[in-house]
Design a binder for these strands. Structure first.
Lengths: 369, 369
DNA sequence: CTGTTAGCGCATTCAA
DNA sequence: TTGAATGCGCTAACAG
């Protein structure tokens, strides 16, 4: 295609390219008459300014990078949608990158995004990053951390109140009379999961319950994944030294094989919840009769299971929005406040059973079927 | 940040910018000695060629556009992941765009992508597009249609065998003895859904069953959506003139209120399946005792419901991959064959009940729990 | 109120 | 085997 450029428009309208540029960007006054002629020519020739040429000239590309773990994870898709809507609303484009929790891929994407001269970056870091992220931060690329913190990076973090959510979930189980509460989690290099384990422990401690390490089970958090890409993934424990079973499904077997099996389970993300349900189904364990279940993150399907699932709901879409809004401020050098964690909410449905009579709960609860 | 450019590298290595360019792109022979010096300088200065400047010079941006309905729809997220993996594998970036089935948004995105000088486009068209898509095709932007056809566009279409999938699903229900089979669908401007209705009708006709228009119900296919963005969406029936209830949940009420209620239901996409389950639950209708259910598109949660869901499974990730591979061929002017629809598969689980004794099925079935 | 012109960072033709 | 010079399409001084 023979792309029409600013020169063509200028010639057609009988003005200079500068004038064309100025009427298009409204960057200085142009008389009504010439302005009209220019716009006519634009229309006639179907002219679209090349964002890339403009980018070269202005050093601003109007595109930002979004690095997440996996767009296939419903949590991240909701977040991504929030990010994207917000940016498009402001004329920015978003380039998506999936790391699958692999620091090497994270690094490679950072390189690519940097080469693409992105105006800013939103990243849910793997947690074991190379120095490149730090170097980018030092190169003054505006960065917002999403959902997770990363060692050595001072960028603002937009997150959810993970610890409190886990605390509420665990405490709820305790108040229902549960004493042996298992927790299914993943890599603790992911700060989000680490915080959730902390909240769990805190609730136990406050209730005077022992923290039994046998009840803390770790699985590869990428349990649900398209099989095609799964085969390409390196095992996560080759990255860290944490002991880990390859899937939630398998990790759960450990818990269920325990001589003194837990009566309740706190599952720290939605992917692992599906693995848990699968494992329970295979063992013909009923929920909540045999085991109670609370999981982190709500979803469309959560209320439709039998029993409907009690969850800690987090504002996913808003999380993405907030991160995007903050990044926009950073880019335009506006003042900003360091973000506070977004509130989460325990949504009580049917997947937890009461073991003993307990006094009225002091937690902030929502009952909803 | 003071970006280091090709000039800096050239100076540092004591060569011309042309030489630097050539060693980086391996586009002409350079002596081992100078080559080494250049690479050293690159390393030392941490040089990254600006893709955008390169884009200006070569008229190739190494980025492609992906326009879909909604990344929040699990079908599209799997497809998008397939597209993205394939492109990244080849050094291309992907820009995502969500239209929410709104032709106006589709048009706006086309404009933006065009201005960004994308090397190619993959699009699941809304079906009621403006002329811009056609103009882009005429401007020789390589285009691949994804999952849906669009009137007036001659670009190759990568799709799934929708009609056959719907045919198999319906025929399966018929063989189980069902005679009144409802279908829940959406906009028929979306070719995919239109094909599924066709498959449904064909199965009925072949079996000598009447086609009862009262059993064909249409809903806004965007049923599940983040509420924030939902409020901004214009009603779809303002776009087309089809009668439509605003959600699967409500559409289903119509069917259930029928004097002669259907004994089975074919739901034409996964979003509407959730709405259906919700409606059935509210009415305390049990599946499959009161009503049998087959839906199009499989998901992680489908086998975990009670009862587990019988579905038509389609290769979502592969669909995206195929589209990407085809587009890469178009971009590099390689020869290509017009794609054939990808096969789908009826996965039988527990959500359909047998009404009568029937002879052995002649369909290609997979039984799986 | 508008035009001229020098870059932005790179690829590439022509020369050497 | 390598350099110099031009242009990609646009913005932004600077000049008028």
């Amino acid at each position: 295609m023979a792309r029409v450029n600013i020169r063509d428009v200028a010639d057609r309208a009988g003005v200079s390219t500068a004038t064309v540029s100025h009427v298009i960007n409204q960057t200085r006054f142009v008389s009504e008459e010439t302005r009209r002629r220019v716009l006519e020519a634009v229309e006639l020739l179907n002219y679209h300014p090349s964002t890339i040429a403009r980018g070269l000239a202005t050093k601003s590309t109007q595109t930002i990078g979004l690095i997440i773990s996996d767009i296939t994870n419903p949590f991240f898709t909701a977040v991504a949608r929030g990010v994207e809507d917000e940016f498009n609303h402001h004329g920015y484009h978003t380039i998506f990158c999936n790391t699958d929790e692999d620091p090497a891929r994270e690094d490679e994407y950072l390189r690519l995004l940097f080469a693409h001269q992105i105006d800013g970056l939103i990243i849910a870091p793997t947690g074991t990053h190379s120095g490149r992220l730090i170097r980018m931060a030092e190169a003054e690329v505006p960065i917002v951390l999403l959902d997770r913190s990363a060692p050595g990076i001072t960028a603002p973090l937009v997150e959810v109140d993970n610890k409190n959510g886990a605390y509420q979930a665990t405490r709820y189980l305790i108040e229902l009379g549960h004493r042996r509460i298992g927790i299914l989690t993943g890599l603790e290099t992911i700060s989000t999961l680490a915080m959730r384990v902390e909240g769990y422990k805190q609730a136990l401690q406050e209730a005077g319950l022992p923290i039994d390490e046998a009840l803390i089970v770790r699985a590869d958090p990428r349990f649900h994944k398209n099989q095609l890409s799964l085969t390409e993934l390196p095992p996560l424990d080759s990255i860290t030294n944490l002991q880990m079973t390859p899937s939630a499904f398998l990790a759960l077997q450990k818990l269920l094989d325990l001589p003194d099996r837990p009566t309740a389970l706190f599952v720290t993300n939605n992917q692992m919840t599906l693995g848990t349900l699968q494992a329970m189904r295979q063992r013909k364990l009923r929920c909540p009769e045999n085991i109670s279940l609370v999981s982190f993150d709500d979803h469309d399907w959560a209320p439709l299971f039998v029993p409907s699932l009690t969850v800690v709901r987090q504002p996913t879409y808003e999380l993405g929005q907030c991160a995007a809004k903050l990044l926009l401020k950073l880019i335009s050098h506006q003042p900003f406040e360091t973000p506070v964690p977004l509130p989460v909410q325990l949504v009580i449905r049917e997947s937890c059973r009461q073991l003993l009579n307990v006094k009225h709960s002091s937690l902030n609860l929502t009952v909803e079927m």
